[in-house]
Structures are given as structure tokens and as C-alpha cells.
Design a protein around this nucleic acid. Structure first.
Lengths: 248, 248
DNA sequence: CGAAATCTTGAGTATAATCAAAAACGGTGG
DNA sequence: CCACCGTTTTTGATTATACTCAAGATTTCG
């Protein structure tokens, strides 16, 4: 009903709506936000550390990652972004970007001017809260990643990352209970969990041998969710979803 | 001029004011926020993961840490909190806490009801932005910690943490250019950088031998800031301070 | 089909963990 | 002021997890 202008907002509107239901006028205001839609091919930076953006991006489809590069050129992926995510929403209130965002697959990205975002926030306090909340969940995920990388061994870390991705993909309808398409390379996982590619490869072989995951190309199947959760020391609280979504 | 009610707010007001100058009415509204002040002794939880808080805390003095505990009981410190910080401000929009906050030294803590915070945000949009921004900087720090722990070796990690603490302590007047009081034990540093206590001890000895730091009790002196920065691969951009504060 | 990217394997090495115990420090009470 | 206690720091020896390097196999995609 009225999603005429930007049906593309669906992943975002659906996400915000699932947390606290939007009123019609709020939903409409979101759908009316101006958005420049761009297709970006795999392995390209969407934004770069050091930028002073005047717009934020909404990932409409594809996989992306938030990353930083150290002085000696090593890349740390600090988070994965999926449809409905706004990986650089923080630039709305922080002038300089302290991280880059890059595509892992071809992506459809919508750019929304900060001006329009400030405007909608001013008129709809509940939307301000919803956006703020999104950035707080991002922070909660970073906290969990600090813990994951700092305290768990590689095998557990890897299982944990699989759990997080499964839950988040399910929440936006990109995974069913048991499987999903996960076009992330072992080298990318390595940069995400702070391990070498070789080690990730060996860990994955062990996980397959233990029946935690089954892979066929980029398709991943989880034969037993509870076992994977236990192996990954995974508690979905930090994703701050509604119970129904986070459970499984 | 009117700081009669809660001069205790000074560390917070000063911080917010330093980012974008507050108008008198905004400053006054902040000073009028109701706040219950409590002294908490060392090693106590201020809030605990799983709580559903109805208030947020403002650290008035002392050192605290944000931490999580893994399934097998290991503690990861995800961040240090100093005077002026609100380490659980996220509970304003996230119902369940996904981390705990504990004191590292005796602390003076002010508890501010969420109701009052929502109220001031509703009336002063610029204060909403300022609080939101604070949580965005927290997130930026978590991102940097992910990178620090994931990609740097222990020696560099440790130097990096020293750099961050020095810059932040300087910003609130708790450090001069060269030294500060840093009552954090090696075991706590270990939980922060994801290393063992023994290894932290050896790294610190190496840092002392290399002249990066000089310690006398809890007093830390940095003989050569530029050298420490280089050793810690430290770029203060992620702290999103004004140039003047972040430089040094 | 062929080139490039990704995944896999093996061998040798390094960083850091663990365990255990001793030394130094800091605060307290006599 | 000193003796005592618990905490923190330090040391040594051993072990483990994970890295690096290098090459070969497999998959993907044009």
C-alpha cells in the first residue's frame, strides 16, 4: 500500500518495523526518502576510511564487510553487512569515517543524503530512536566480536561467526532454518576471525568432519543448529532481536 | 553560573560541550537531570549482562570496564571507562544488557533514570545527537579493538591500549602530556588485549626496556609520545576528538 | 577450454598459553 | 614503625595453537 516510490526500502522498513511496529505515516516517510540506487561490483569499496560522507548507504542486496587496515597492511573485517543494513550510518553524526566498507559480492546499494535522514529524524522521533538503535546493535556486535576474537580459539570463533550469520540471514528472509547461501571466501573469514587462511581451512575441515556444517559451493547447511550453537558458544542476546527471530 | 544542582555533571557536560558547544539552556537542562550518586568499591559490577535497566550510569570518577564472559568463564574486557563516560548508555534503547560493567577502582557513579534521558532528548534534539554520537564513538572504539586484537601482536596491542588511554585521559584532564595515574593491573590488561597475564608481564618488561613507558606504582610516564604511537600503530582518528585534543 | 581465484596439503617455525612457584608490593593492624 | 597478609608482579620450563612458506589440486567463470 503505497510502496510505490522505493520498494527497495523493504529490507530496511521490514527490519525497523519488526522491532517496534511503524505507524503508517512513519513507514511512508521512510519510503519517501530520496535514495540513489547503484550496483557495485564485487571487491569494491563503497566508502573508505578518511571519507567525509554527506550520505549513508543502505545495502539492498549482496554481502559487504566493514573493515580496517593496520599500518603494516593487514585487513581486519570487523563485521559483515547483509540486506537491510546501513553499515556507515554512523557518518550521520561522525564527520570522518574511521573504517571502510567493501563489497564481498556484487551489491545493490542505496545512498541516502544525510540531509534527508536528519530531516526525517527531526520530524519522527521514533525513527530517530530506530536508527539510533540500529547503531547500538552494531556496537553490540562489535563487542561480541572483541570477545570472540580475544577469548575463543579459532574453531569456536568460526562456529560463532556461522551462528551469527545464520540468525541475521534468517531475520531478513535470506536463510531458512537449515541453510543459506553464504558467498564468503575462506580468506575473508580469516580476516574476520583474525586467523590465517590456512588455519581457517583446517578449522573448516574439522567442522565438516564433526558434522557442524555441510557446504556445497557457497551453500551452507547446518544439520544440527543446537550443536553448532554449543560449538560456537553462541548466545543471540547481543543481536537484540525479538525472541521469535533469535531462537530457531 | 547555575551549576548549583549537580556540579558532578561536569565531566559529561564538558565532554559534550567540547564537541559542539552547548547553548545555555541545553547546559542547564543537563545540569538539572536527576541523578543518584553512589560510591561503588573496587571490583564490583555496576550493571550486569542480562539486566533490564531503567537508568543509565555516568562515571564521575574512577576507572571501570565493559566486559563479557564466555561460556567457559573467560573474561574479555571490551573497553575501559573513565570519568565522563556513560558505559551503559545503550540501555536507553536496548532492553537487555548484553555486557556487564565493573569497577576497576573505587568509583563515584551517577545513575540517571531513562525517563529523564528520554525527556531531555525529546526537548533538545541537539542533546539527542550528542548522546547518540557518544554511543557511536563507543562503537568506533570497539571496532578499533577488534582490529587491535585480531591483527596486531601482543606488544603492539599493548602499546595501542596505552595510547588510547593516554589520549582519552588527557581529554578529560586526567593526564598531562607525559604521564597519568593508571590503576589497571596486568591481569586486567591481559583480559583487555586477549593475552595471558604472563605474556602481558613480559611484553611490559620489553616496553620498559625499549623506553616506551616508565612506571612507578600506578603512575605511567611516556618519555616519547611519537615513539609510543608508532609502536602501537596508533591513529587517534577513531576517537573522533577535535584535532587539538587528539594530537599531542 | 583456459586463466584466475580459491581451496587444500605438508613441513618447519613463532608467538603465546599453561603451570608452578618465587619475589615484590601495598595496605592493615599491632 | 614494623610485621603480616593478600595481591600483584616476575621468573623459568614446557606445551599448544596458530603462522608462514611453498606448492599442488580444485573450482569458478569468462
Amino acid at each position: 500500500m503505497g510502496n510505490t516510490l522505493h520498494p527497495e526500502y523493504n529490507p530496511l522498513v521490514r527490519k525497523l518495523d519488526s522491532i517496534f511496529p511503524l505507524r503508517d505515516d512513519e513507514r511512508q516517510a521512510l519510503l519517501n526518502l530520496p535514495m540513489q540506487i547503484v550496483v557495485i561490483k564485487e571487491g569494491q569499496d563503497i566508502v573508505r576510511a578518511g571519507d567525509h560522507p554527506s550520505r549513508s548507504c543502505l545495502l539492498l542486496s549482496g554481502f559487504a564487510c566493514v573493515y580496517k587496515v593496520t599500518g603494516d597492511g593487514k585487513r581486519q573485517i570487523a563485521g559483515f553487512s547483509i540486506a537491510g543494513d546501513m553499515p556507515d550510518l554512523q557518518s550521520l553524526h561522525l564527520q570522518v569515517l574511521d573504517n571502510s566498507v567493501s563489497t564481498l559480492t556484487p551489491c545493490r546499494v542505496g545512498f541516502i543524503p544525510h540531509e534527508a535522514l536528519h530531516d526525517i529524524c527531526e520530524r519522527y522521533p521514533r525513527i530517530t530512536s530506530a536508527f539510533w538503535r540500529e547503531t547500538l546493535i552494531d556496537a553490540a556486535i562489535f563487542r561480541e566480536w572483541v570477545t570472540n576474537i580475544g577469548q575463543r580459539e579459532a574453531y569456536t570463533r568460526m562456529a560463532h561467526v556461522y551462528c551469527e550469520l545464520m540468525v541475521r540471514l534468517r531475520a531478513v528472509g535470506l536463510a531458512d532454518d537449515h541453510s543459506c547461501d553464504l558467498p564468503i571466501t575462506q580468506a575473508e573469514f580469516a580476516d574476520a576471525i583474525g586467523a590465517s587462511t590456512v588455519h581457517v581451512n583446517r578449522v573448516l575441515q574439522e567442522m565438516r568432519a564433526n558434522g557442524l556444517i555441510v557446504t556445497k559451493g557457497t551453500q551452507v547447511t547446518i544439520p544440527d543448529w543446537e550443536t553448532l550453537k554449543r560449538a560456537g558458544d553462541f548466545d543471540p542476546t547481543y543481536l537484540h532481536m525479538r525472541k521469535a527471530q533469535a531462537a530457531a
